[in-house]
Design a protein around this nucleic acid. Structure first.
Length: 579
RNA sequence: CGGGGCGUGGCGCAGUCUGGUAGCGCACCUGCUUUGGGAGCAGGGAGUCGGAGGUUCAAAUCCUCUCGCCCCGACCA
């Protein structure tokens, strides 16, 4: 008998009737109610048996697809020496998210939030020749990131399980192939998990690297905003989405009018300004004073646009970018916040492309309670550099094909990066190429949040009664509910079916608790097992059992003699639908 | 870290303003009845009221400090 089959009475699934107050989103609520997880501390969870089973289902799919793609599994330590992080330069860069401590010998250590350093260390020690490349290594392991604010249960925990893979190639072309290969494996993985997802272009963040895609599960509870093209396959994280400036703006051909200062008492925001002056926000230049790690700078965007800090950071090549505090604003502009303008600024000025050539704009006068009208670049202020600095809007066209864009939310469950030689250079992971030259290995890295994938699946597949598991990640494939345990025939048939299906390799959950029918139905719905079999005196009167899919309200009777076969086929067809 | 909120049997909450025997629903245990959508009756067990200090004849309740958790923001796979 397959060991994954279980009897409720001999298993441990502590279900909850009421929703714990701490849970906000559906997946968190339902994972607590089904007894999948329990919280130990903020962002730290115990996985109870039912939750662990779901995690393992996802892990198994990930392993199969990674192995199929030629990746090789290993397991790296979670405690890592600080030394290695100092060598890569991330000891200082990573910040408080990296949980650091000293061991008894007073050696700096940390809990691994990711494993580029460790894996690169292995490769630098063991790989010396192009003949050993390419290679892709992966692990499924617990990570720790000391998040400022963990939330949504397992969705954004401090301790979490992640599959991380790292590819090593002799050159860029090879790395691109490895990247492609992983990208395709990811598509296969999430498809098999029964998820509606989209791969989007993304910023690389602190992991670094040259380009990257995020795999987003489409869900309104997602924390990331994504845009996708309705016509072509373009999809992107909102913060990464390029804006293509199209055509000439109406005001570009205008005559430059006479510069004019106006009194605007207590008018600070764009809304206040546009209603005070009765103009449209597109005629206003927003002057934002920011602070990088080295200097204050001014960023200009149009009044109806918002600044994309990621783009600004990249355009400036800055490591840090934060809104300047009121004192800095006063120092740079000579005015309190709300009246900043670009005229006469000593700091570097970057402007969004949409402002290029715009005439007779309105901006702050760098003087309290004053704005200026008819401001023109060149004549009245200077721009050091034009760049794509703003957030894309629903009015903007697709940067690839010009089609219209759709905005939505997503949960990031996977991320693939092309790292290039960032870590191999820092850690001197070199090999000898076929010409005998020492060359850095070219790396890629690829993560999947295992727990987050389970949570995202629940977020996407549920109804008011509980989970509707895609069969591929459901802890059990079939749940059997014998309704009247005191009836020996009911119990016998249920037991027999349980044994028979289990022997056939199905994972079956037998609810053999002496509970009333309603209670069992509710729990079965909560747990979300795809196929439900009910055995009762009523069904046995017709020498049948009842079959119902969790995903459909339809009830059907199947004759006892055919039951096992029909159930097997039903399960199989559910798997087939995920291919 | 800034703003807001909450800590009272396992879970969900009332009681705190106005100090005076610690309560309700669910869950749990025993018995009987009940059995197709979270049963009924009867009986029962279970709480340092987050912690420390203080005020008071008397503190869940008032004061001070502290810890934990949740939400919003900044941050982030």
């Amino acid at each position: 008998m397959k060991s994954s089959s279980r009897r409720f009475s001999e298993f441990f699934i502590p279900t909850l009737k009421e929703v714990p107050a701490e849970a906000e989103i559906i997946s968190h609520q339902v994972m607590l109610r089904t007894g999948m997880i329990r919280k130990l501390a903020a962002g730290i969870y115990s996985y109870l048996p039912y939750g662990l089973m779901a995690l393992k289902k996802v892990e198994d799919i990930v392993r199969e697809e990674m192995n199929r793609a030629g990746a090789i599994e290993l397991l790296l330590p979670s405690v890592q020496p600080g030394e290695l992080w100092m060598e890569s330069g991330r000891w200082n860069y990573y910040g408080p998210e990296l949980l650091r401590f000293r061991d008894r010998h007073n050696r700096e250590s940390c809990l691994g939030p990711t494993h580029e350093e460790v894996i690169t260390d292995i490769v630098r020690r063991e790989i010396h020749s192009y003949k050993q490349l390419p290679i892709t290594l992966y692990q499924i392991q617990t990570k720790f990131r000391d998040e400022i604010r963990p939330r949504f249960g397992i969705m954004r925990a401090r301790e979490f399980i992640m599959k991380d893979a790292y590819s090593f190639d002799i050159d860029e072309q090879g790395c691109n192939r490895s990247y492609e290969n992983m990208y395709r494996a990811y598509e296969a993985i999430f498809r098999r998990c029964g998820l509606r997802f989209r791969a989007v272009e993304a910023d690389t963040g602190p992991i670094g690297g040259s380009f990257s895609h995020e795999f987003m599960v489409l869900s309104d509870t997602g924390e990331d905003e994504i845009v996708s093209c309705q016509r072509c396959s373009y999809a992107s994280n909102l913060e990464k989405a390029e804006v293509v400036e199209q055509g000439e703006k109406s005001s570009v051909s205008e005559e430059e009018r006479v510069f004019q200062v106006v009194d605007t008492p207590e008018v600070r925001t764009i809304e206040e300004l546009t209603s005070f002056l009765s103009i449209g926000p597109e005629n206003v230049v927003k002057t934002l004073i920011y602070q990088t790690e080295s200097e204050p700078i001014a960023l200009l965007v149009r009044g109806d646009h918002s600044l994309n800090e990621t783009k600004a950071k990249n355009a400036l090549n800055a490591e840090e970018l934060t809104m300047a505090d009121p004192d800095t604003v006063l120092e740079v502009t000579g005015a309190p916040m709300g009246f900043a303008g670009a005229m006469g600024l000593k700091v570097k000025v970057l402007a969004d492309l949409s402002l290029k050539g715009m005439k007779n704009m309105v901006m702050g006068a760098n003087e309290e309670d004053r704005h200026v009208l008819n401001v023109n670049e060149g004549r009245d202020f200077r721009v050091d550099q034009y760049a794509d600095l703003r957030m894309i809007t629903p009015e903007d066209p697709c940067p690839r094909c010009g089609g219209s864009l759709q905005f939505g939310k997503g949960i990031e469950v996977g991320h693939v990066f092309k790292l290039g030689a960032k870590y191999s250079n820092a850690l001197k992971a070199n090999f000898l190429n076929e010409h005998g030259h020492e060359t850095p290995v070219i790396m890629g890295c690829y993560g999947i949040g295992i727990g987050r994938t389970v949570a995202a699946a629940i977020e996407q597949c549920h109804d008011e009664n509980g989970i509707i598991f895609p069969i591929s990640i459901s802890p059990f494939e079939v749940i059997i509910l014998p309704l009247e345990l005191h009836e020996s025939r009911v119990r016998e048939v249920a037991d027999q079916l349980y044994g028979q299906l289990s022997d056939n390799g199905l994972s079956v959950f037998l609810d053999d608790r002496d509970e009333r029918p309603g209670y069992k139905f509710k729990d079965a719905d909560l747990l979300g097992t795809p196929v439900r079999i009910t055995v009762s005196t009523r069904t046995l009167r017709k020498e049948s059992v009842e079959i119902k899919l969790r995903s459909s309200p339809e009830l059907n009777l199947i004759p006892l003699l055919e039951a096992a076969t029909v159930i097997r086929k039903t399960v199989q067809s559910l798997y087939d639908s995920l291919k």
